[in-house]
Simulated scan of single mutants.
Amino acid sequence: MTGGEPTVGAAIRAALLTADPQAKAMAARKVARDWRLGRLAFAFGEAMPERPARPPAPELLPPSRMPRRGRGQSERGRIALWHALGHIEFVAIDLALDIAGRFGAEMGRGFVTDFLGVAADEAMHFGLIDRHLRAMGSHYGALPAHDGLWEAAHDTRHDVAARLAVVPMVLEARGLDVTPATLDRVRAGGDERGARILERILDDEIRHVRFGATHFDSCAQLRQVNAADLWKSLVSRHFRGAIKPPFNDSARLAAGLSRDLYGEVAMPQGAG
């Protein structure tokens, strides 16, 4: 608190420490709304948690131990796909909250506004997917999931430029690449409602990646270094995977990522 006034840092921390999925989604949307309406002071007196609170389910497994999804158009395969997408959106709530709370004091009000808006979007996406899963007779938590997305956040917790380089500009950008094919597969299976959900997510994710790219450029300017060189250096140091084609070049360009940036570090198509 600052002079009795609620602070954005305290509100973000409370949302991160909310374990129940639906309650976390509601908390994220409330923080974003209260910040937008001027109800929260720009102050960060509390440290962000090393790890956000998580529900008892889903069970979190290493990626190597994740069960195969099954055939894409089988009922089991469809549920596994939507459960995996739901987990990505659930973790993305924490990713957006954490970057706003961990680096907001350093980066300023506009940065907080952008990433609390992202958190609210991810909460809405999670709600749409969870309702879709329930309409299919399942729910979030019914299947295991892996924690690779949060591991990437934890590994970059000491440097905002590294966080921006890896999370929005690599991991979320990969979503721009794979979502169109997933959307086509879902629509081909007759799931028009699911296809509309994915179209909404893709549109929003372009904006989210653009926020990451824009604030990363600001970091590079402050450090008086070339943005592309800084990005390549940080990705090589902090990203354990490979940047693989095919790329959705038009969506990436709309998000502020030029082919000149990621093309030089990408694996050749078909490699790996």
Rank of each mutant, 00 (worst) to 15 (best):
R157N: 13
P56L: 04
H125G: 01
L116I: 10
A80K: 02
A135H: 11
R134S: 09
H139I: 01
I88F: 14
G72E: 15
A119G: 07
I79T: 09
H146P: 00
A123W: 04
H125A: 02
E151M: 09
I129K: 00
I93E: 02
E172H: 05
H83Q: 09
R54Y: 08
A161S: 11
R65S: 15
R174S: 12
D94Y: 04
E172G: 04
R69K: 10
A153F: 08
D159L: 06
P180W: 08
H154Y: 12
I129T: 00
W150P: 01
E59D: 11
L183N: 10
A162Q: 05
R68T: 11
H125C: 01
A100M: 07
R76E: 15
A92L: 02
L85A: 04
E122G: 02
L143A: 05
A135Q: 13
A142I: 08
L81N: 04
G101E: 05
S64M: 12
S138H: 08
L97N: 06
R71C: 10
E89Y: 02
L164I: 07
G127A: 03
R163C: 04
G141H: 01
H158A: 15
E59A: 15
F90H: 03
I129A: 00
H154I: 03
V91S: 10
G101K: 00
E59G: 10
E151V: 11
L116T: 13
L149Y: 11
R174H: 13
D147H: 14
E89G: 00
R185H: 10
G72W: 14
L85S: 04
I79R: 11
R185V: 07
L128A: 05
T182K: 07
P62I: 08
R157P: 08
V160M: 07
V178G: 05
H139A: 13
L143F: 07
R54K: 12
P180H: 05
T113G: 10
A57R: 15
P144E: 03
G141A: 02
L183H: 12
H87E: 09
M136G: 13
M124F: 15
G148Y: 07
M169E: 09
V166T: 01
M136K: 15
E59K: 15
V167A: 01
A181K: 08
R69D: 09
D177Y: 05
G137A: 06
A119Y: 11
P67Y: 11
I79P: 01
A135R: 13
G70S: 06
E151N: 09
V118E: 13
R131Y: 01
L85E: 09
W82N: 03
E122H: 06
M107E: 11
I99V: 14
R102G: 10
H132V: 01
R78L: 13
A161M: 04
P55D: 01
D147A: 12
A135E: 15
E75L: 12
M169F: 07
F126A: 01
G86H: 00
P58I: 04
